[in-house]
Write a protein that binds this DNA or RNA. Structure first.
Lengths: 146, 146
DNA sequence: TTGCGTGCAAAGGTTTTGCATGGCA
DNA sequence: TGCCATGCAAAACCTTTGCACGCAA
């Protein structure tokens, strides 16, 4: 693809700068909108959506779909790690809604296995493990013992 | 949880009956609404949404998130497999929509690992692996080579 | 000067919710 | 009779889009 011309704009710069300050965290487009609104640095929300999407295309930002109805999560990856970056996996607690992201060697191995033995190439950006976090397991047991 | 009382209603019966006729296919809530509207058997859309959600909780129906912006997909699983001893895992191909069921020892091991090392109890009925099946991987490569 | 990027407001589509009514047990 | 389920319409929600204007190159 011929990578059409890209203007350098204040909005894009500020967006990237903000994203890099929350590297490693998941944020939604709404979070970003709110952040800039609170800072007084106005960036229109359509710009934020459009730039985020562009950054995802460029590989600078990852986009995760947690589930159909909650807003998409974005995470700054950075330009350097762009190719072959290691990504993290996501566990969503159905009890409290908490999202846990983990870097996990075993997961990587299992993904290999899926690929080799089952021919399935799993997409870590889309796959989310649902279940219960430690806290909610405890609470659940307490509830059962009542 | 004490599993609150559940009334047996015409709407719920008809919904389950319809779902079982399209077992193995994925349909959206909108499809269901449309189906009943066309059949003249009126079921309100809020009922459909509410019942679908309930069936998902009961494990009779699986819910898939294709991507953040398209409607959620549902698929009838059936009551038997629900309380069953061995469950299978689901891989959903994002290319062709195919759903792959697999019994997999490695998955079981990974689940153990999640539990022991990360304290997360994954729910196999809820969790779906998204990715690309073999066929679609091949097609994707062909497309790239164009 | 060219045309990409921005911002606003409005539209888009799916899903949820409030509330009165209906129907199961 | 007591609640749960239903249905309608409206709301909520995130995201996209149309269009005019601004600004980078």
């Amino acid at each position: 693809m011929p990578a059409s011309v890209q203007y350098k704009t204040r909005q894009k710069d500020e967006l990237i700068r903000y994203l890099s300050t929350v590297q490693g965290k998941h944020i939604t487009a709404g979070d970003v909108v709110k952040h800039f609104r609170e800072q007084g640095e106005q960036i229109g929300q359509s710009t934020i959506y459009r730039q985020l999407e562009r950054l995802v295309d460029e590989g600078i930002v990852s986009k995760y779909t947690i589930d159909a109805n909650s807003p998409a999560c974005f995470e700054y990856i950075g330009a350097e790690s762009h190719q072959g970056a290691e990504h993290c996996y996501h566990c969503k607690c159905e009890g409290c809604g908490k999202l846990i992201h983990l870097h996990c060697e075993e997961m990587e191995e299992f993904r290999e296995h899926l690929k080799k033995e089952h021919g399935f190439r799993m997409d870590p950006f889309r796959t989310v493990f649902y279940g219960l976090c430690e806290d909610c397991q405890r609470k659940g047991n307490e509830a059962q013992n009542k």
